[in-house]
Design a protein around this nucleic acid. Structure first.
Ligand SMILES: [Mn+2]
Ligand SMILES: [Mn+2]
Ligand SMILES: [Mn+2]
Ligand SMILES: [Mn+2]
Lengths: 231, 231
DNA sequence: CGTAGTTTTTAGTCATGGCTAAATTGTATC
DNA sequence: GATACAATTTAGCCATGACTAAAAACTACG
């Protein structure tokens, strides 16, 4: 058997089923309404396809669907979403740590592998990593029984200038963006000194590993930090 | 991009396409004629489905199909089969070595993972294992450019009694059989002393790690060995 | 409220790739 | 060579899940 949630559902789920549920979960956690258009845009299929799939998921009791309303996960749907998300983030960390895959590439690899990970493999990976709590981007890894911790931190763009911070999460999975940040030395847990914060949503000046860089406001908004003093 | 052979083919191949090609390759190497029934039995679909798929593979120039004749791989088809086989065997070894997955479980895991392995990951795995030549069952791992070595050895059932041998390959991927062999201590590269060989295809008596065991003739036929003196 | 514009749903099409059942072809035996 | 039996192919069915285009339903604004 290949999946933990297998006992809770009627028919086996395809990769796309799982990606839909994961997408709904992620959109839910963003606090936005999970409209059909938001969902279809996120997964990259047409709105008609999204409606179609959501109806099927509703028949399987994985989501609640009321026409023209935002879709929501049922408890079972959330369990499935969290299991796939756990696979995804464990894989990202494993690929990064064990196989030296750069942090800007792990997402796309995990996107395919997450669907073919057995329980045994999930457990073996988790064990070999020492039961980690976050992935290479600082995203929390759901526990086996579906708990997920809230990550601390606040955007660098909303932090006080003249202080040192530690990067605890990057709210982006865009390959190019992550590659750029990596070039600046901005990897997870790196120390960042916030030199200057321009007003009117202007750029921020930071110092990383002795070098100074300017970051656009929207970029800085994606960088979650905590005070470096909290060591 | 996900596969190396992508440039050589017209349309992307599904997991099942790849498994068919791999199956044809394996049946070919057994020296038997790859009949429709042999193929359909091996892959576990009906003969009608096999005919159907073989015709599609023929349209893509991956196999040669003539009605009522044995099917054969084209050079391109062989390249695809060998790439998937490389994925499979690299994964088996990786799972066994790096994640301690038992040798009787790696096959089924690799059967799913082999289809979602990117070039980058294939390379990273091969590098982390030190570019290995054989998998945990002694099956040769095809090279990146599609070369595959011939493994030495002969069946234990056709070996001379009173001599010591080294197990270099097990010609089975049945979970229960491998688990049983593992319990006897019969893992790859283990030393086996052939105590007695009963006539008329009778059982063989072996000594492994100080313990004596009797093996059925068909079991012993699956164990490929070389003289232990060849150290 | 009524209407324009947006969002969502419906309806209908298509490709894929399994399946069963029936027809056909090939093979072996008398 | 006829005939039985096995292997293979054909024909037709079905589920899945994408798509486009059209219809319907919501929303917002004058
Ligand atoms: Mn995915
Ligand atoms: Mn991540
Ligand atoms: Mn496979
Ligand atoms: Mn093997």
């Amino acid at each position: 058997m290949t999946k933990n949630y297998a006992s809770e559902i009627s028919s086996p789920l395809s990769s796309n089923h799982e990606d839909y549920l994961k997408a709904i979960y992620i959109l839910e956690t963003r606090g936005e309404q999970v409209t059909n258009s938001a969902l279809s845009e996120y997964i990259g299929f047409t709105p008609a396809s999204a409606t179609n799939m959501v109806k099927k998921l509703a028949q399987m009791d994985l989501v609640i669907y009321r026409p023209h309303q935002a879709v929501a996960l049922t408890p079972t749907g959330r369990r499935v979403a969290l299991e796939i998300l756990r696979h995804h983030r464990l894989l990202e960390l494993f690929l990064h740590q064990t196989l030296d895959i750069p942090w800007d590439s792990v997402h796309e690899e995990a996107e395919r592998l997450e669907h073919v990970l057995s329980e045994a493999l999930e457990d073996a990976i988790a064990a070999s990593l020492g039961y980690p709590k976050v992935d290479p981007h600082g995203d929390p890894i759901p526990s086996k029984n579906g708990e997920i911790s809230h990550t601390p931190g606040h955007p660098l763009s909303q932090s006080e200038a003249g202080r040192a911070y530690r990067l605890v999460r990057v709210l982006s999975q865009e390959k190019e963006r992550l590659a750029y940040l990596g070039e600046l030395g901005l990897q997870l847990n790196v120390e960042v000194f916030l030199r200057e914060q321009a007003p009117f949503d202007g750029p921020v000046l930071v110092e990383v590993a002795g070098e100074e860089h300017a970051l656009a406001a929207d970029m800085a908004a994606l960088l979650q930090v905590v005070p470096a003093s909290a060591e």
